[in-house]
Design a protein around this nucleic acid. Structure first.
Lengths: 161, 161
DNA sequence: TTATGTGGACAACTAGGTTGACGATTGCAG
DNA sequence: CTGCAATCGTCAACCTAGTTGTCCACATAA
């Protein structure tokens, strides 16, 4: 039963969703509500040196306005702080807070645990093989997360009628 | 170098995006502009018996209004026809047109070709193994495509500054 | 015949993006 | 030192693809 290409695509999407949805749920259980990959990526970019909204936008391939909006929610949650830059009054310097780093660590941990579960299902060898294959196919790093308010809690987005 | 769980998720997303983005581009080349997975899924649901907007919404787990909007664009493109239902004046019966089926076939073909390319990259055995593993992990059918205006032409959505 | 339910449409709203414009400030050329 | 161009952050308007709520016309079952 040689599968179709469309099935393959769906399979990949399904795998991704399974991981991300589970991760969001698990993070909520641990007290970090509604943390989505977008948030993680954003904090990571800030930690990696994107210390103002414009620069952040550039790194995430998103407009500075959109970046500012995301920063606003992260600031509200206490994950990111914004202080005036002493060297340039125009800028507001961005910083990931201790709480922010805590969330990032928790996120990593959750994903690693999920990966372990997969390892138990199909075996270490097999999982590593799968990763190697995918790496060969899509390259080691790529991934612009791109569009995605997506990557949101799916359970809350179900129509009522 | 045991990879992290987050990398695994990114890898899966990357694979999916690679296939879908390539497919959209390829379909455009063949004269079917801006055909997205959403459109394909919708037509498939209609062909499978969801012959009115409300029912379609239910099958796609989306509000009937949202379903109606999607139908509107498919109708405009001539992929789907809407005729009054003789048995129930309230209903407008949905039907996939010949052109609509043509698009679906083209889509399948493109995905199959992309899968062939992958097969050439890592080998038939290896690809089938990857599919088997993923199937074991996420189940054979799942996938609610869910959120997605996503699955849109990424190249057109890049900020200008 | 009447109560209840369903289909489709319209309106208002949300989320997360996009452009465009603008004032304040910085930095560089002259 | 002056002045022009670029940059930062913010505001406002808009887009897309969803959502809910409301409504009328019609169907159906009691």
């Amino acid at each position: 039963m040689s599968r179709s290409g469309a099935d393959l695509a769906l399979l990949l999407l399904g795998g991704f969703r399974a991981l991300v949805d589970d991760a969001i749920v698990e993070l909520t259980k641990r007290g970090y509500e509604d943390v989505r990959p977008v948030h993680d990526f954003t904090m990571r970019a800030i930690a990696a040196g994107a210390d103002n909204a414009s620069e952040l936008g550039r790194r995430l391939s998103v407009s500075k306005q959109a970046a500012a909006k995301t920063v606003a929610v992260l600031e509200e949650r206490g994950y990111v702080a914004r202080e005036p830059d002493p060297l340039d009054v125009r800028r507001k310097r961005l910083e990931v807070t201790a709480l922010g780093f805590e969330v990032m660590r928790a996120g990593e941990a959750v994903f690693d645990e999920l990966r372990d579960k997969w390892k138990q299902k199909i075996g270490t060898k097999e999982l590593e093989r799968l990763e190697a294959d995918l790496t060969a196919l899509v390259g080691p790093s790529p991934v612009r997360v791109d569009a995605p308010g997506w990557l949101a809690p799916p359970s809350t987005r179900r129509p009522t009628g």
